[in-house]
């Protein structure tokens, strides 16, 4: 494309300007604002003019704050278990169900369904199923415990899943696994089916069995895809809070108070906007580093332009 010098500047700017305006007003300014507010003591409901400049005091307070440490620890545990189990299950199912089969599209449609459901609805359904009194899950656990009394030693009795500190986080993890394993499954399956047939054939002719093919041919070729998927999933888990908001609201105690929920609770319950911003800055930092990781593997600008 040959363009005059003026055109090189003006035309692209016109095309990009609307997007830039929306991104700046809707994302970048708020993020900068969060940074700025983090240096102030500012209570909800008071005008900005009454905010008090604290310098780094909010950050010092955070370093000594037991609550933030708990929150980071909860977030890490939640992220670790959800992403690990989802990746393992997703990859295993994709490998097992890789072969094309009649009716595959019907199943694929069903597998997409949880991804389309509102997190609020997912949270409410699972809250209902895990309910101590009326929950279906409790009913069957109790029924199994009654049928085989021996199992009652292992906790096969009614539980208030979302009310017990040791059980609340696992319950949330299971909910997340239900909703997001299909996502991993579908992406890995798409990747597997896009592997070049010649290489598979060559390995097959060389006498590789199923296990060898999987371990030494397929998985290494899939590694970049697996890493990007994993990073995307980790970032999403860090970002999400709606299901937890609905199911436990961070409780009981602090046992499910993930970072993003902690921001909301600090801002809207403790009404401490400055301190909530400090936690926001940490969360932005974490997701920023993780997204740089994705950038290394999957850069839209790296692919040749025309």
């Amino acid at each position: 494309m040959k363009e005059s010098k003026n055109l090189r500047w003006i035309v692209p700017s016109i095309f990009i300007l609307p997007a830039v305006i929306i991104l700046v007003v809707g994302l970048i300014v708020p993020v900068i604002q969060a940074f700025y507010i983090s240096f102030f003591r500012w209570d909800m409901g008071t005008p900005w003019t009454s905010a008090q400049f604290l310098g780094l005091d909010n950050y010092k307070r955070m370093l000594a704050d037991e609550g933030v440490r708990t929150s980071i620890w909860v977030t890490l545990r939640y992220t670790f278990w959800t992403t690990t189990i989802e990746m393992l299950l997703g990859i295993a199912f994709a490998l097992a169900l890789e072969k094309p089969i009649k009716g595959a599209s019907v199943f694929r449609t069903i597998f997409i369904l949880p991804l389309m459901v509102s997190p609020v609805v997912v949270g409410l359904i699972w809250k209902y199923m895990l309910d101590a009194r009326t929950g279906v899950i409790n009913y069957y656990i109790e029924a199994i415990g009654k049928a085989i009394p021996f199992l009652q030693n292992f906790g096969f009795e009614r539980h208030s899943f979302l009310g017990e500190p040791q059980l609340a986080l696992p319950a949330l993890i299971i909910t997340d696994i239900w909703q997001w394993t299909p996502f991993i499954f579908i992406i890995i399956l798409a990747g597997l089916q896009a592997l070049p047939a010649e290489i598979m054939e060559a390995a097959f002719i060389d006498g590789a069995n199923w296990l060898q093919m999987t371990l030494w041919v397929k998985l290494p070729m899939m590694l970049p895809l697996i890493i990007v998927t994993l990073l995307m999933r980790i970032i999403d888990v860090f970002r999400a809070l709606e299901v937890i908001f609905i199911m436990t609201f961070g409780g009981p105690g602090q046992s499910t108070n993930v970072l993003s929920l902690k921001i909301y609770r600090t801002a809207f319950q403790s009404q401490d906007l400055g301190y909530a911003s400090v936690i926001s800055v940490i969360l932005i930092g974490i997701t920023f580093v993780l997204s740089l990781g994705i950038l290394l593997y999957n850069n839209p600008a790296k692919v040749e332009g025309s």
């Binding site: 969060a34 909301y264 993780l290």
Partner: peptide, 16 residues
């Protein structure tokens, strides 16, 4: 790509 990852929770305080 990077701003795609901004957590919605981060927006709550600036929105207020």
């Amino acid at each position: 790509l990077v701003v795609r990852m901004v957590p919605p929770a981060v927006l709550t305080v600036p929105i207020v």
